[in-house]
Structures are given as C-alpha cells and as structure tokens.
Write a protein that binds this DNA or RNA. Structure first.
Lengths: 215, 215
DNA sequence: AAAGAAACTGGACGCTGTCCACATTCGGAA
DNA sequence: TTCCGAATGTGGACAGCGTCCAGTTTCTTT
C-alpha cells in the first residue's frame, strides 16, 4: 500500500495553520475510512495536514483522543445513514405498517452503513477501553438523535401501535441491536465475509425479520 | 499496569530452549487473556520465554502468525466452553425439549465464555484482514466440533424435532449467531458495559429467546 | 569426524506515540 | 503603540515495536 505521498497540502506559508484541529480530524476520518481505527495514526494525520507531529498535541491530548473524536464523527454519520433510510420509506400507510417500516429502516440503514463505510463503522465501535454512550452532541445525526436513540424511537412506535406489549419494551433495543450489530460483524470480518453481497442482503432481511418476530 | 517483571523464567542455561514454540504460544495466550489481541506483542512473548526477540521467527513467520495461532487456541477453548454448557443440561426429556435445551446451551456457553474470558473471546474474533472459518483442527473442542459446527448441530436438531421448518434452516446459524455475538459485543465493549452482570444475564436469556422464537 | 541444517543471539532500521525545550505569532493591557 | 503572556507550531530526543541480516552455537546425519 503506497500511503506515503498522499494529500500533502501545498506547504503552507504561514506559521499558523489556521484550522489545524479540523484538518487533523478530517485526516483522521479519511484514515479511518480507508483502513479502520487501526489506520488512524497521529503522525500520518499531521503529515497530511502539513504540520510537525507534535503540533497535534495542541489540539488532541493523545492519539486516543483523536481516535475518540473520529469515533464521534463516525457515529454521527451512522445516524445520518439511518435517518436517510427512514426518510426513504415515508409513505402514507397505517400506523402499524409505518412502525414496521420504521424499525426495518433503522436496521437496514445500520447495515448499509456497516457494509458501505466499513472503516468508519469499525471505528465507531472500536473500544480500547470501555465506552460510554453519552449524549455527546457530536455523535448525533441531523435529526438530533444518535443511532441508539433512533432505534429507541422506532421501538416506541412499536409499542404505540400495539405491535409490542409494553412489558416487553424495556431493554428491547438491546435485543434488536444485538442481532443487527452481530450480523454486521459477521459479515465485515467474520465467516460471512466471503459470501456474495447479493446473498448477504437476503440474510440481512431475515435477521431483521427475526427481530420483528422474536422481540 | 506493571507488566514488566513477569513470568521471566529462571534464565535457561542451555543454548536451545527446548520447546520454544509452545512457550511462545503459551505466552501469547496469557497476553491475550490479560489484554485481548492488542496485547499480543512479539517481544513481550519472547521476553517471557527468556529468549531473544528474533528467536520467535524460527517458529512464527510474523507477529500476525502468532496472533493467528492464539486465535485458534481461543476458538478451541470457546468450543470447550460451549460443550461444557451442553453437557450440563443433559437430562432425560422429550426430544423437543432436548433440542431447545441444546440450542440454549450453545448460546449460553458462548456468552459465558465471552464474559468470563473476555480477552480470549476478543482475540478469537479479531480480524486484521478477512478470516476464513476453515476446518482447522486446532480450533475444535474436545468433541471434535468447532463453535460454528456446534451451533449447526443444534439447529439440525431443531429441524429434526419439527421445531424449525426445513425451508428456514439454510443460513439459520447466521441469524442465531448474529444475535448472540452482537449481544456479547455490546456487553464487552458497547453500551451495555456498565450494566450490572445480574441484569445482563436476564437480557442474555431474552436474546436467546428471541432467536428461538424469531428464527 | 565432518558437514549441513536448525535454533538462537546481536545489532540495526524505520516506524510509532509522546516528552521537553524552543520559536513564532496573536490579542489584549499598559 | 508597545509590550507581554498565551496559544500555536518546530526540532530533537527517547523507548518500544515488528522485522531484517549476519553471525554463532548446537543437534543430526553421514
């Protein structure tokens, strides 16, 4: 992989960069997109920003700190992908059908992002230590909801339309999420990696159906 | 974390180590158990074996090669954990109840291993590149089946006892696996990390129930 | 006893994250 | 306007990593 002479900006003339934090974050996102969390390397980010390695420390406390910022961005993009999928299926239907379509869209958007932006998806769930799912605004999508909240909203509609008895509502997001997330993992770097994408789509639909039926 | 002066053997007197490959593999497994795949570092393994860093290259082509060997060992231990759980529930029951208990045991064993041997579990599914689920004998448990085969066998019994219509059998392992694997991931380093273990057990049972019902 | 293969050592290289001391520039107070 | 402190970026260094190359020691085979 020739990663050396890439995206080197035209040798800035000013001493100050001007917007280094954003530049580093952008480089980090690009790196993650190309090669996952492992590929986020501080020195390469500074190289792409045209700046000395240590300059990064004025904006990020450590490599881990940069990784975390990229992670937030990835989660935000994931939320956007889910919202896009939800918006796609907006038709006039019965409340019940709408609730079903909504939940399916949440799952489908999640999977689409996982398979389309694999590097970012992996980064979004890369955890050296434990991860808190705080209400960090940097992780939300355009709707103001993060991925977890989007799923919760979809399940609330299930209860609202009587598709899910209220006593089974608590913690239901974890059942749904488990299935879809696990499936994504198995496809991305598990035994389903070699299965043709056409078949994947079918199995993915069955995973979502299993959730609808079994939740 | 004081990781330095650990398990240094008593300064071997012979030039040859005698059983270096096994020693390195053992050190690698210990490292993985303590800190996951990330913690498997070649130089540390050689240090623990009391040998120069390069000596490792007589037995493993690269760090990745050692990682792979540890991975196989981890998968084998996972299979053992699953088998143990299956054996626990062996009582005289109807074939149907036995099939249900079998599938639940497969899931429960998987989860138990994931939560008990987190480092090894993470290692088992760490994939820098893509991973093939070959019939590598080093990955099997005592029964001669690897984790995937154990799950397949459990599902076959479901079909055999009429609990699962044959037309839904194909690829069903991926539905079941997705749910349980995803749940493990969410607990290990996802948003469920902070949830008390008592509650986790309950949600885990519901995940498995969802699979039984929704598959 | 000699030769050849196998196992291990020693030193080096380039890469990484991070630390420290220094240089430059900007913005506000005098 | 000038000066001074805070913010930002540079340069050099360090230890640790995976890996390569060239030796050295030992075991095995002839």
């Amino acid at each position: 992989m020739a990663k050396k002479l890439r995206t080197r900006p035209p040798a800035r003339t000013t001493y100050r960069h001007g917007d280094l934090r954003r530049a580093l974050l952008g480089a980090g996102i690009a790196l993650a997109r190309e090669g996952g969390p492992h590929a986020i390397v501080l020195r390469e980010a500074t190289r792409r920003a045209g700046v000395a390695p240590n300059a990064a420390y004025r904006h990020f406390a450590s490599r881990q700190d940069l990784l975390e910022a990229v992670r937030s961005a990835a989660l935000s993009e994931l939320a956007n992908a889910m919202e896009a999928e939800i918006a796609k299926g907006r038709r006039a239907k019965s409340a019940e059908e709408a609730a079903r379509a909504n939940l399916r869209a949440v799952g489908a958007g999640y999977l689409r992002f996982a398979f389309t932006e694999t590097g970012l998806f992996r980064t979004a769930f890369a955890t050296p230590e434990l991860l808190g799912f705080t209400g960090d605004p940097a992780r939300k999508g355009k709707s103001g909801l993060d991925p977890f909240e989007l799923l919760s909203a979809a399940l609330d509609k299930f209860v609202g339309t009587g598709l899910l008895p209220p006593e089974r509502r608590p913690a239901a997001e974890f059942l749904a999420w488990s299935a879809v997330h696990g499936f994504a993992m198995l496809v991305i770097d598990g035994p389903l990696h070699t299965v043709p994408r056409a078949d994947i789509e079918g199995i993915g639909a069955r995973v979502i159906a299993m959730v609808e039926k079994g939740i």
